[in-house]
Design a protein around this nucleic acid. Structure first.
Length: 433
RNA sequence: GUGGAUGUAGCUCAAUGGCAGAGCGCCGCACUGUGGCUGCGGAUGUUGCGGGUUCGAGACCCGUCUUCCACCCCA
């Protein structure tokens, strides 16, 4: 008995039909990142268990562990830890600030949901060793441009700063131990609404008055300048909060200087982000339709990259979810045209004229035009249908009349228009040189 | 990982425990030199998979996988 043909739970095969879009996504992201001077990098999927474990708290159980002989290993949970290792391991090869991109799979043992798999690809983009708001703005600029390059129109990159939320907690009198619960509740605002957040806050032991203030704060929305103003007013008494607002203001200012379309980002005090290691600016790209959660997330994490080197290495970065982009782009009809790689379809009018068809196809191929022919002298209708189904732009017909006149019928299957073309001009008529 | 849904034709979905169906798509013909429009005709199938209950299971029970939702987390 052969083994059962089945992929492991939460993991997917990507057949040629899927790969066209995946490769398009990756090459588009790569092109934008490269234009901003980010350099490629790749690290192993397998790391020593000690490299990955001990940093995730409750999520330790999501790590895939494996053993080979006496070696205790793990599949990477994300690419950030690997980046931290590389920074510590090659101090002489890498000059800071270091802009790098990396694409590849990571592994988490979660139950599968839409856009959430046990093996998932991320396109990571990080700037290591730069602490200021310009590095933040640059990453956000790449995000905005990359999503536009992929064809997205209705997306928003939500911007916030971790310290703004910390300051909010202090200002409304929530003690530090409860602050984590507040962030988690706030983060769900878009999903469960004000009433849902209120319930969750009260359930978490937050005073009713404080809860109302938190909700009012997280509902702030509107023009960037106004939102920043309102946030500043609310946190005025908190020095660190005020500094964070200034930082966010600076990020937005740089985005303007970088020429990023203001319609693609929003200051959003409700954005919390789950990962506990963020220290400053945080962001997340969302899209109204179709529902998918977030397309990417990221932020500044100044304390994580230095853990291997035992020093602070300020870093800001993001991770695009390839599968999520793939799902959403498929549903929105974005991406490369479904048109196949073949340009011309040469019909075979009759068995006697097959030679003419093959000679014509041969000429086209020599001219660099991807060409297929019918494989039998079927009815013309059937042949044209095959070409149409394969979304081939041009169908060529050489019948007795054309042969006698030294012409070829060139039919544009997209428009339905056709014309007779001199045999020697056919290559030009189908777009060749 | 916890709780809950889900799976029937290529697709979207029907079918009191009693002959597996519809629409769309697909194929053929009308159309012997032209795909899309129209008409007529045709085939859709291991009802996710494996067990069990029953005279009889697409339906009920158990297991498993898939997809999805909530929790958790996040790409």
């Amino acid at each position: 008995m052969p083994a059962k043909a089945q992929t492991y739970k939460g993991m997917k095969d990507y057949l040629p039909g899927d790969m066209r879009l995946r490769q398009y996504i990756i090459s588009t992201l790569t092109a934008v990142a490269t234009r901003y001077g980010f350099e490629p990098m790749q690290t192993p999927i397998v790391e020593y268990e000690d490299t990955i474990a001990g940093k995730l708290g409750d999520d330790e159980k999501l790590i895939y562990r494996l053993q080979y002989g006496d070696d205790r290993l793990a599949l990477r949970y994300d690419q950030t830890v690997s980046l931290a290792r590389v920074i510590a391991q090659y101090p002489n090869e890498i000059t800071l600030p270091f802009r790098r991109w990396a694409v590849g799979p990571s592994y988490r043992g979660e139950r599968q949901q839409r856009g959430r798999f046990r093996e998932f690809y991320q396109f990571d983009l990080d700037t290591v060793g730069a602490g200021g708001p310009l590095a933040d703005a640059e990453i956000i600029a790449v995000i905005s441009e990359a999503l536009q390059a992929l064809g997205f129109r209705g997306f928003r990159v939500l911007l916030n700063n971790r310290e703004i939320l910390s300051a909010l907690a202090r200002v409304v009198g929530v003690d530090e131990a409860a602050a984590g619960g507040v962030y988690r509740a706030i983060d769900k605002f878009d999903k469960i609404g004000a009433q849902g957040v209120r319930e969750q806050l009260l359930q978490g032991g937050i005073a009713a008055e404080a809860a109302e203030e938190i909700i009012r704060f997280t509902q702030l929305d509107g023009p960037t300048a106004e939102v920043l103003e309102a946030v500043a007013a609310q946190l005025g008494s908190d020095a660190r909060g005020a500094a964070a607002v200034q930082e966010l203001r600076a990020v937005v200012g740089y985005l303007q200087d970088l020429g990023i379309d203001p319609a693609t980002y929003d200051v959003a005090p409700r954005l919390a982000r789950g990962l506990s290691y963020y220290t400053g600016t945080v962001f997340e790209a969302v899209i109204e339709q179709p529902p998918i959660g977030s397309l990417l997330g990221g932020g500044r994490y100044d304390n994580l990259i230095g853990t291997f080197a035992d020093r602070a290495v300020p870093t800001v970065g993001t991770a695009f979810g390839i599968e999520r982009l793939q799902i959403v782009m498929t549903e929105l009809g974005l991406g490369p045209q479904s048109q196949g790689a073949v340009t011309a379809y040469v019909t075979i009018f009759s068995a006697e004229l097959a030679g003419e068809a093959l000679r014509l196809a041969s000429e086209l191929r020599r001219a660099g035009i991807a060409t297929i022919t019918a494989l039998a002298p079927d009815k013309l209708g059937k042949q044209l249908k095959e070409a149409a189904v394969k979304t081939i732009p041009f169908a060529l017909i050489v019948g007795p009349d054309e042969l006698a006149k030294g012409e070829v019928v060139v039919r544009d299957l997209r428009s339905g228009e056709q014309r007779n073309v001199r045999r020697e001009a056919v290559v030009g008529a189908v777009g060749g040189t």
